[in-house]
Every structure is written in structure tokens, then in C-alpha cells.
Design a protein around this nucleic acid. Structure first.
Lengths: 107, 107
DNA sequence: TCTCAATATGTCAGAACTGATATATGTATG
DNA sequence: CATACATATATCAGTTCTGACATATTGAGA
């Protein structure tokens, strides 16, 4: 896997295994992170296309603005479960969620 | 939504809101549960097609046989994150995971 | 520049999830 | 039937995730 891709992911705060000098991501790890980021990206796009603020979305899903911000930022402390629940709350169906999961990441 | 579908889901142990007399699932809740069960089904099929036991899969993903059993059974205490990580560990890529998420449930 | 709404970042107690363990229930084979 | 292996179910302490809160940063208008 590409160095550039690693750095892009690490910048979000993702860290695996021994963070000694250099992170060692397996292909599965990368697959998981990219999937996570794909959902984060969709959430942000969906919210914006609906014209909602993060605060409004937070209310919709009984969460908080700060957590919605973290969701959209691809923060590692946010679970895929939460991302999916947020998307469903914004009217995305599971087929669309699945589609997004497999989509290529924006550069 | 159909009564039969509700009962099928409730049987797995899924409960929402006030369990007073009758469960009240929103469409989003159902969408989430079905997505969850779709992944559980894929995991079981994938494991079986690879000829692994639950114990072997557990070792692969640093988990336990009992948790793998719960994963495959669609137990509500299993997160979608864990299901996805298990699938990735069995060589399913994120596109395939996404595809499965949107698939119709077996009757 | 100042203001203000939106978004981002850091922290933490409580809630949810996890692996481990024990044990029960299959389900074959001898 | 017993033994053996696979799977299911229950429980629980330790870990992770969560909403809430505080605060910082950004961006657009006046």
C-alpha cells in the first residue's frame, strides 16, 4: 500500500499496533478505515444536501454536535454503528449505506 | 411493516423502547436490524464455505467461540463493527460487505 | 476589525460492547 | 449408551464508545 495513503489515514488519528516510529497497518485495517471514512464522507454530504447543521442532526439522533463533528471527521473513536445509525436517521437506506461503504475515497 | 417480520426480529432478542405489551420499532430501527442480520448471515456462510469452525474464526480475529456464535446468531450485543472486522478477516472486501448489507434477508 | 453562527477539539463519567469462561445443547460415530 | 467435537447460551470484569460539556477555531457579514 501507498505511503501517501498511510499518511492520509494516520493524520485522522488512526493508530494501530506499536506506534514505534512507524505504524504497521494490515490490509484489513486499511480496508476498515477506508470503509469508515467512506461513511463519514457520505454523512457530511447528506447532511449538507439536506441543509442541516451538525446541531440539528445531533438532535435528530439524540447525540451532540461535538460527536457529529467527530463522525464527519472520521474520528477513530466513532463506531461504524453510530455512523450507520446517523445515516439511517437522515433517510439513507441500507442499500445506499452499503453502496457507500464500497465506494472509493475522495483524494 | 409486517407482523411476521417484527416477530422474526424480536425472536433474536432485539428490543426497542418501551417493551410494554408491544414493541414499537421505527423503520430506521428495522433497517438497522436487518442490516445487522444480513452481515451475520454472510459471516456464517463465509465461514462455512471456508470450512472453518467457530473456534478457528475466533482465533483469527482474537475473539472467542462464544462471541462468534453470537455474531452469527444476530445477537443484539454484537456490534456492526465487530461483524465487519470479522468479515474482513475472512477475506471479504469492503465492497462485498457493502453489497451484503443491502441484500434481502433469507426468509 | 468585531460578532455570531457553525464547526472542531479535548475531556470524562456512565453506558455499551468485548473476550473469557463455564456450561448446555446438539449431532455424529463407535 | 458414551465419547468427542461443534455450536449455543449465560455471566461478568475490563475495555471501548457515548453524550454532554467546555472551549477553541473557522468563516461570513457588517
Amino acid at each position: 500500500m501507498k505511503q501517501s495513503k498511510r499518511r492520509r489515514l494516520e493524520a485522522k488519528g488512526w493508530k494501530f499496533g506499536s506506534a514505534k516510529e512507524f505504524v504497521n497497518l494490515t490490509d484489513e485495517d486499511v480496508e476498515y478505515i477506508e470503509l469508515h471514512l467512506s461513511l463519514a464522507t457520505l454523512l457530511k454530504k447528506r447532511r449538507q444536501s439536506l441543509g442541516y447543521t451538525q446541531t440539528e442532526v445531533a438532535a435528530l439522533i439524540s447525540s451532540s454536535q461535538s460527536r457529529v463533528a467527530k463522525m464527519e471527521a472520521g474520528d477513530p473513536t466513532v463506531s461504524v454503528d453510530l455512523l450507520i445509525r446517523a445515516l439511517l436517521a437522515l433517510g439513507v437506506n441500507r442499500r445506499q449505506v452499503g453502496r457507500a461503504m464500497g465506494a472509493a475515497l475522495p483524494a
